[in-house]
Design a protein around this nucleic acid. Sequence first.
DNA 1: GCCGTTTTCGGCCCGACTGTTTTCAGTCG
Length: 570
Amino acid sequence: MKNEQIANLFEAIADLLEIKGEVVYKTLSYRRAAESIRALGRDLEDVRQDEGLRTIPGVGKALAAKIEELLDTGQLEFYNNLVEDVPEGLLQVLTLRGVGPKSAARYWKELGVTSLEELEKAAREGRVQTLSGMGARTESALLVSLEEYRRMQSGRLLLSAAEAAANEMLQVVRGIPGVEQAEIAGSLRRRRETIGDLDVVVAAIEPEGVLDAFVNSSLVLKVLAAGGSKASVILSNGVRAQLWAYPPESFGSVLQYATGSQAHNVRLRERAQRQALSLSERGFKTRDGALIPCSEEKQVYERLGLPWIPPELREDRGELDGDVPPLLEDGDLHADLHTHTSWSDGANSIEEMARAAKEAGLQVLAITDHSQSLVVAGGLMPDEWQRQHEEIERIQDKLGDSPRLLHGAEVEILADGRLDFPDDLLEEMDIVVASLHSGFRQEPAMVTSRLLNAIQNPYVDIIGHPTGRLLGRREGVALDMEKVLAAAEERRVALEINAHPERLDLNDAYARRAVEVGCLLAINSDSHHVSGFANLPFGISVARRGWVPRNAVVNAWSKKQLFAWLDRNR
DNA sequence: GCCGTTTTCGGCCCGACTGTTTTCAGTCG
């Protein structure tokens, strides 16, 4: 059983235990363990054999035993018994906005509801409002939530889409009279790979007036909740958003609070408690009730004796325990080592791509069009690659040394593990990116061995988008990532963090693990268009979330260091 | 169910908003 499945199961257990009425701290333990497992970046089986499951934060004796049972049998008796008590269908009921464990339990016990369909029926028949403490408004709100659930099935936004929507919202909010400061917060500020809803924080002398103007603006389709400090809405583009409006003296406190993550904030508040302080979005409160607001975010961390923590790290993954490495910054990448042109499935010529790369501040650009077998993407035959080579030399002459062009290919790793070009051609190339575009449904062990084959080839420099996932569309291959990392480390082959917002592959957890085992990484745009270089910051976000130091990223190196690495086997 | 420079037992974060209440529980982030 794989990490993701076990994490999901633990979350389902937490939900069911909450409906059952179990003490909330027990359910929190399951949730915390699930988060730790997601952040692991390696198989639980490996952790069990090496340092032991108990070394995972939030996994104690009981949860370790449950993980072992799942690893060994693929089953969990505890869970099987639990669903005898509490119907699994209630898990979906719990996802409705406005429905928590207490309400779900009452719908189930008092109305016999065990699924979304049954709940809808009960609400339509007016049975929900017969429950004590529930009225007609609760019932109609429930029907609205059910409607929302159907519409919003698609779920989370890609980072790029969320960023565009948030900037639009930010522009509107900054134009509201009385707004002194406005910033993006929430998971978008932490640069998670997908975003559920937007959070924007503003400083204003009169927060109520700002909130009022916002909810009445043309940007807002529907108001879900609105008070004197915050408003929760659906924007006209269908995206859910929250606006937090607080007085300027509390701006830092609320920005910190609204940025989260929740787990990170809990850690901070525990820390505040040890200093006899209580921490909230308004500031610190002393035991005698005096409020100490923070106008700047860094003051929140300062008072707790901490350095300011970059938002990308605020996930309760050890960021408060010690030194954080110096992270990659926008502008640290001097090279893009994986791009396409109209020679295969790109939209622009080599020259257009080169000029755009220079415009984007890059000193080195690798042209890596697809290889012959990827027919749908216009993969190049060997003789076409030779002709492209002449073309690249001509353009290099024309452009001078800026950017420096490298000529390579994104070579298919074929279904049997061979590469799609012969070695003597690969040897001629300045750079070789090897990638999978087919055979994703093979057994993970087979896909792993295909990658290992590619890594063993002396001319391969980078493994492109290693798992092949497409966010929201295709799961990545369940590779034996530890084997891949170990081989890549030994051969000094870099693994890609593909910066396309739909890929972001490797993800943050694998990137962090890669660095731990000494692997090199490359952050590439995989551009198919001159606009593609604008995606590089998304790759940098992944690296930052993965605690990746600058010196582990080959395209953040100097030209000299980069070329020496590329020449290592040539 | 986890965890320990207060503790191996007894803690475990905080406030805004809503709907239904006559003072608060539930949900959310």
